[in-house]
Structures are given as C-alpha cells and as structure tokens.
C-alpha cells in the first residue's frame, strides 16, 4: 500500500513552513507576558501566529487578545486535559493541529509561537512540535533554580530569567544565576529581562529575529508547498 504524503505534514520536515518556537516555564514566570512582548516587537515586521496552552484554556488567549498585540484570530487556545506537559511533549497532536490551522488560515507565516501551560522544571517541548524553544524562569523562584537544572533549564535554546526588577526584593543574586546557568547550559544563551520595565523584550526579540532569519534562509519556501494543508 503506497501512502500519499502530499497533504501529510511531518512536523520534523521544516521545508517551507514557519519556524515553530516553543515557550515554556513554570507558572507565573512570565511566559504570556513574553509572548505579548514578542508580538509587540515582531508583529510589525513578521507574520505571526500564537497557540496558547493553559489549564484554564481561554485565560492566556484572552490576556493576549485584550492586550491588543495581535489579531485575535491569530491566537488559538488548546485544552490540555489537566496535563500541560503531555500536550507539548507526549501527545502533541492537538498543538500540531492548531499550528497547522494557523498556517492554513493565515499562511504563509514567519513564526508560530506555542506557549505551554505553566508546568514544572522538567517540561520541554517535543521536537515534533517546536523547532526551537525558550524556557522562562523568574528570579522569585530563588537563585538556586538554574543550578538545579532540569531539561527546561539545560536544554532550551534560550533561557530567559525574568523579573530581574524583583531580584533585590527576593534576595536573588543574578550573578549566581548567570554563572550557574552557564555551567549547565553548555554555552547556550541566557538573557535577563524585566518584562514589566521592558514591555517589548528587546533582547529576546533580537534573538528570535535572528533565529527566524536563519530559519528562512535554511528552509526557503518551496512554492509547491506554500498552500498549507492540515492533515485531516
């Protein structure tokens, strides 16, 4: 039996589609604020889509819609059945469906951001879903968190330590965090942000922009594939 793969997305195949960027991290670390900031920074120059995963599904999507940073139609929310990490790692079908739906409706897109539901330090995105991923921590969890490691901290393509404005209040030593993160991350970048003060997350936006440009260069559109289809 010969299978026809013509309308069947293999997520691992990057050819001619948007970069899929996962943003994960513990509850309250600022994932949604970072997504909003990236939409503000990148929206004018990029074609964006956003998929949110949250245990209270509509909450983050509503936050983004109200923030007015992106056409609400371009924000889809996925229910995770009480298991946010399952939806981004073990069973990514619903998230892939949402990503492809965005590409189908609004494509071609440059970047689709998938925001995970708040989870613990072990949650990471499947490579079948996200091409690159950012892990967001905040200083209020204590400056020992990077040292503890965990797949999110050690493996993410970018580690963002947010809420640096709170560091003096919670007694977190940013130098320690930076040193510990570098030690477990094998040279992968770490950025410190205060999204309350920098609502456009300039440094992260620059990193993402560079990523998208590299991605586009490496995976130039194939015109035969510019009509995205969702595997039924």
């Amino acid at each position: 039996m010969g299978a026809q793969h013509d309308d069947l997305h293999d997520a691992a195949d990057p050819h001619g589609r948007a970069l899929r960027l996962g943003i994960g991290g513990p509850v309250g670390s600022g994932k949604t604020a970072l997504v909003a900031a990236l939409c503000r920074s990148l929206g004018p120059s990029m074609r964006l889509g956003v998929v949110t995963n949250d245990i209270y599904t509509t909450e983050d999507a509503e936050f983004l819609r109200r923030a007015g940073v992106l056409d609400p139609e371009r924000i889809l929310a996925v229910q995770t059945g009480c298991c946010p990490h399952t939806a981004i790692r073990d069973d990514i079908a619903a998230n892939l469906d949402a990503v492809e739906t965005l590409e189908e409706r609004f494509g071609p897109l440059d970047l689709v951001i998938v925001e995970s539901g708040g989870d613990n330090l072990t949650a990471t995105f499947s490579r079948g879903l996200a091409d690159r991923q950012i892990f967001v921590l905040d200083v209020s969890g204590g400056d020992k968190v990077p040292r503890k490691g965990g797949p999110g901290v050690t493996m993410a393509d970018l580690l963002v330590v947010n809420k640096t404005d709170l560091a003096p209040l919670v007694g977190a030593d940013l130098t320690v965090m930076s040193r510990d993160a570098a030690a477990v991350r094998d040279g992968r970048p770490v950025l410190f942000t205060s999204l309350r003060e920098d609502r456009s997350a300039h440094s992260v936006a620059e990193w993402v922009t560079s990523l998208v440009n590299t991605w586009k260069h490496a995976n130039a559109h194939d015109h035969e594939r510019t009509t995205p289809t969702t595997a039924a």
């Binding site: 998929v51 599904t57 509509t58 999507a61 509503e62 819609r65 609400p72 139609e73 924000i75 889809l76 929310a77 996925v78 619903a94 469906d97 949402a98 739906t101 969702t230």
Partner: peptide, 9 residues
C-alpha cells in the same frame, strides 16, 4: 473548521 481550538471571542 477546527473547534479543537478556540478561535476567537
């Protein structure tokens, strides 16, 4: 066509 996801308010 995709109610798996919540497409808008």
């Amino acid at each position: 066509r995709t109610p798996a996801v919540d497409a808008g308010p």
